[in-house]
Structure formats: structure tokens, C-alpha cells
Design a protein around this nucleic acid. Sequence first.
DNA 1: GATAAATGCGCCATTTTATGTCCTATTTGA
DNA 2: TCAAATAGGACATAAAATGGCGCATTTATC
Lengths: 244, 244
Amino acid sequence: MARTNSNDRLKRLELLAVQLKQDELCTVKNLAQHHGVSERTITRDLLLMREQGLPIDADRGRGGGVRLDRNWGVGRINLTYPEAVDLLISIAVAEQMNSPMFLASLGSVRRQLVASFSPDKRHKVERLKSRILIGVTASTYVQTNLAAPPSRVVQTLHQAFVDQRTLAIRYQNEGGAISERQIEPHYLLLNYPIWYVIALDHLRDAPRTFRCDRILSADRTETRFRLLPKEDFKQSLQGNDALI
Amino acid sequence: MARTNSNDRLKRLELLAVQLKQDELCTVKNLAQHHGVSERTITRDLLLMREQGLPIDADRGRGGGVRLDRNWGVGRINLTYPEAVDLLISIAVAEQMNSPMFLASLGSVRRQLVASFSPDKRHKVERLKSRILIGVTASTYVQTNLAAPPSRVVQTLHQAFVDQRTLAIRYQNEGGAISERQIEPHYLLLNYPIWYVIALDHLRDAPRTFRCDRILSADRTETRFRLLPKEDFKQSLQGNDALI
DNA sequence: GATAAATGCGCCATTTTATGTCCTATTTGA
DNA sequence: TCAAATAGGACATAAAATGGCGCATTTATC
């Protein structure tokens, strides 16, 4: 918690945790010299840290020393709200995509993330998650003409999706024809590696599905929309609706 | 940091952060009453917290109050070393897989994670990352006979890969024949959604590639192996070597 | 077995910090 | 103009942190 702090002890406790984390073996003597305090003080610090739940082991006797259980946190990371949301969604997508390598520990990361949200934010994130659908992996044929959409488009779309804001896009369909549309991005569908926006098209006042990599440009508007249930987009989903 | 702490102030500072995060608007008076300390003490706490970098805003005047910038972290998460490694690898894989949705904020999460590692651990993680290869997405044909490997196998394989330990597996090849092997898991290749182990097969003393979902069982051994360069597995990679 | 190096912790005097009280200045909405 | 809010200076006092000492205990090494 303490960073550049006027509070000496807080600063020292913070540094101690970092040192114990990084150096394999410290002795109380070393630490005392390093911090310019007495050994007694360091032992008291260590006691306090133990009381706080840090798994600090100590080996007595010659050659002994103090260690922080290596299983303990490499460090705290502070996530802003959008960072936490993106991370949570990404983990959910990764878990859903059913490619199980390296996912063993991700469950507990996800649980920690969820726990760190306040109840109403948790609810919002849950709703956001329910708006992302994971389908089958795209056929090899569909993939061949895949181009990465420009990151500006992705960012705008992402923002509009999260904020439930109407979006003005230029879209190139399969035939190559370009049209301009106003869409409400209700759901996102991933048929890996292709993302689709399942949207309400203002022009036709009907549901339409857009391939994200065919969106040429996107601008957000100020108008917000009310979410429609998945049922209203049934014909766009065609059995792809493995929702996360 | 402070939990059930003998240090009153630490506890209070921690609680203050939580309160400011959750409640939209607090006044110094409220907080003072809630914590049973004087208003002066609360203002001093807030000063300290600001010095520590917390973005605390305050509105003066009637109807004013104290707020924690809502952009600020929803909470700190403590990751254990394996959790952090898995998360970092997963983010790297996700970024490499080139499915750009929800990846906007993930870069900064990754940077924070990397920064929280000590230099030597950072190096280890980098090396681990370089042992994971991302190839093309599997053809629709190959995907049809995909079954999720049992999680015990995945966990054992994962551990052996990270620890560079030899692995005893039972493997079923494309024809259905089952064999028992001792392998050194040097590299992992993802042709989404299928993971391959690129390994040295002790039986033949030659490189072999195994589909993870065809590994029937896996047991780790105690013997560790020295990593061989990618070049030694060239014939197994066949142009798939888009390494992360 | 002796010794040195290490942790663990109790006790007490001393120093430092945190807190409360009182004060003034400033901003802001009603 | 007033009341409610933050901001922060000054000072006395209560509380906590620190250092130094001693003693018990554990453990590797000679």
C-alpha cells in the first residue's frame, strides 16, 4: 500500500515484503543493516507481517534465515475498472474456448477478480459477460479472407458495446459493396478467430450480423439503447448460441 | 495490506480506501464518526493516502465530500507465482491469437504483471513464453475429432513443461494404437483449438509431436532435462513456428 | 561436545508518531 | 450572508515504535 510515503514503518514493511519476495534468503541482520534499523525492530516487523497473514518462514540456526513462502503473491496489481473488466471477460472467453492449457490457475484469478468488485459492479460485469457468445470455430474457408480490423475500429466498437451506445459504421459486405449504417451492438459472437457484432440495424429496423473485420470505420454516437433479449436475434444466431 | 492487525492506523487506512471505493459520497464528518476518531485525523489519513498516490478528490463547500476517483482500481489482487505466470502466458497467447476484442486494456495489465516480477523471474517467464508457439488455426477436418483431454493429464503436462521434467505418457496415435513413452516436453504448439507437445521421445531418442488430446495419461518423473533449441525440432514444426 | 550463527521474544527506557483540540482560511450552494 | 464542507497550522498529550539487553532455542560446523 505504501509507496513514496512519509510513514517510515509502512514504507519499510512494504520494502521488506518485496525483498523477501525477491531474495531467496535474507537474515534479520542483513535486513536490519539494509534498512538502518535494529535487528529487534526487524523481528517485530516480521511478527507483524506474520500476523497480517504473510507466510514468512524462518530457519533457525547457523545458515538459517527468513523466507517468504514462494507461493505467495509476486506482487499486488492494481487494476482500474476497465482493466479488470477486460481481464475478466478475456479469462471467461479463454475458459470458454476450451483450450485448457495454462488455465489451471486462472480460475482462482477470476474468483479474486470477481470478489474485488462491489456487488453492483459484479452484476454489471455478469450482464456484460452474458452478452458475449462463443460459437464454433470458423471453417477454414471463412478464415482465408480474414484481415485484422484496424484497432481504432475495435476500440470504438468495444466502447460502444460496453456503454450500450449506438454506433455509426461503414461496412463492406461479402460482395464488396460498402454501406453506411447506424447499429446498436447488442451481442458479440466469437467464431474463433472471427468476431461478429449482433446488432439492431437502424436503417432496416431489423437484426443484422456484421463481421468485425469488415467494418471499415466506426464512430460512436451519444444515443444509448436498451438491451433486447437474445430471442430477438434468434435468426442471426443459427445455433451458435453457446453463451458464456 | 492490513487485515486483522495490531496496527490501528493501517487497518483504518485500508477500510477508508474500501469505503471511498464503495460509497459514492462520504464526508470527513461521516468517516470520523464511523471510525471513532476525530475529523482532523481523517483529513490527515486522506492526506497520507493522497501522498501514496490514491486519486482522492474532494469537493469543498456545502454538499461537498470526498471521493475516490472511480477510475481507480476496483481492488488489489494478490497473485501467487503460478497464478501470475499462467495469467501472463494466457494474455500473451490471447494477444498473439490475434482476436483483438477486449484486448485494449490487457496490454497495461500485462505490463503491470511483468513489472511485478523480480528480474530473474521475469527472465524465467520470458523463456517460458518463448517455448510456446502459436501456429495457424487447425483445419476444420482436424477439429472434428477433438476431445477435451482429462484435466489431470493437462495439469501434469503443464507442470512438467514448466519445470522441464521428463514425463511418462500413454499415447494413442491417429490410427488408434496405444503406446507408452518417456518424453521431454520442450515446446508447446497451439493450432487453435488443438495443443501439441513438441518433445524428445526417449524411446526413439528423436523429436516427436504429440496431440495433447490424444494423451491418455501422464505421470511426471523426477528427472529434469536441458532445453534444446527450436532448430532441433524443425521438422516437427513445418512452418508453424509463429512463436510468441 | 563445544561453538558460532541464526531466530524468537520479554522487558524497559527513550524517541518518534499519531491523535485530539482549537484555530483560521477558503470554497460553495442555498 | 450563512451554513456546510475541505484544508491545514500549532501545540499538548497519548500511544506506538525503536533500541539495547538478556535469555532461550535451534542448527550446522569444527
